[in-house]
Design a protein around this nucleic acid. Structure first.
Length: 317
DNA sequence: AATCCAGTCAACCGCATAGCC
DNA sequence: CGGCTATGCGGTTGACTGGAT
């Protein structure tokens, strides 16, 4: 038995939206909001459309502050660096680019950016670095509260600014989402005191951030000496100035909280050196090239992170 | 002028998952 | 706790457009 259709397919219009339909949808949502129910919305709004279709139209086209047109160099860099880190998680990438939609970015990547990168990689560079199968995802916390210690940050690329979508660590009673930002590579000069100042111990930070789960292997490195944790920590992560914490696995965020995607952990090489990594265009091109030869993406429904970054590090000054 | 072809992008489809009952 | 439904996401499709022949 198949799945029940989300709408009556015989009674819904498909294809491009007319200006009249756009106007109806826009007007309805501006007046009444979505009501938290997209399925019922088209009927209420007098549209012969599937709720999904309405949602997509609103999110990708009608919603206020949508940015259309050329992507800037900065946006290119953000897309590239994030793609290198997390792969085709377009919604996450889009969340870092105000006004851009996941669809927009996906299309841009597939039609232009990828070609742009691949096109300029016809000749591999002479010193091709050994390919890292599991690049660090430089998921960092940037604190933005004026009352708390302000970290500095490094971007993957010079000129790439801070990324803008907030994340939170609710289990630690850390400040609300707007106080933390996902950043490309942040150096936190006072992370221990910052955490303790919010009632969080270092261990709590560790436990929350890695969301240890059975079968997961988490590697925390302290300088070059990592203290690994699999099915229970062998030693506590060492917080302190000048220490570098590294972790395997993919971290994203979901509904404002950090999400550890343990599905990817089995792909990790846990013993590789935890050197700080920054991406440059050349590296992304290399990753891209490797992805086109079949190494990339096998996670979840659509592929994965095999070729790309699934590690992260926090650098403490 | 007609046809072909490649590029672009809006929209669709199906799957995963969160949330509700 | 399991089933069901709505939502969100990413891959894919297909209509449209503009340039080349």
């Amino acid at each position: 038995m198949g799945r029940a259709p989300c709408c009556d397919k015989n009674n819904v219009k498909k294809g491009p939206w007319s200006p009249e339909e756009d106007a109806k949808l826009k007007e309805f949502i501006e007046k009444h909001g979505t009501g938290g129910n997209w399925i019922a919305l088209p009927q209420k709004a007098g549209l012969r459309r599937c709720g999904k279709s309405c949602r997509l139209r609103w999110l990708n086209y009608l919603r206020p502050n949508i940015k259309h047109g050329e992507f800037t160099e900065h946006e290119d860099r953000v897309i590239c660096s994030m793609y290198a880190s997390i792969g085709s998680r377009w919604s996450i990438i889009a969340s870092q680019l105000p006004g851009r939609t996941d669809n927009d970015i996906k299309n841009y990547w597939n039609t232009k950016l990828k070609k742009k990168l691949l096109g300029s990689t016809a000749t591999p560079p002479p010193h091709r670095a050994p390919r890292h199968h599991h690049r660090p995802l430089n998921l960092m916390l940037q604190h933005t509260s004026p009352s708390l210690p302000q970290p500095t940050y490094n971007s993957f690329f010079s000129g790439a600014g801070a990324l803008h979508n907030p994340i939170s660590i609710p289990a630690l009673n850390l400040p609300p989402p707007q106080d933390y930002m996902l950043n490309s590579s942040v150096v936190m000069p006072n992370a221990p005191s910052l955490l303790q100042g919010h009632g969080a111990t270092q261990q709590q930070f560790h436990q929350h951030v890695v969301k240890e789960e059975s079968g997961s292997m988490i590697v925390f490195g302290s300088d070059q000496q990592s203290c690994s944790s699999s099915d229970g920590a062998h030693s506590q992560p060492q917080f302190g100035h000048g220490k570098e914490l590294s972790f395997d696995g993919y971290f994203g965020y979901n509904n404002g909280s950090i999400e550890h995607d343990h599905r990817l952990l089995q792909l990790q090489d846990h013993h590789q050196a935890q050197a700080p990594v920054e991406y440059n265009y050349e590296e992304i091109k290399q990753l891209l090239m490797s992805s086109t030869t079949g190494n990339l993406h096998g996670h979840g429904q659509d592929g994965g992170m095999e070729g790309f970054g699934s590690q992260g590090k926090v650098t403490m000054m």
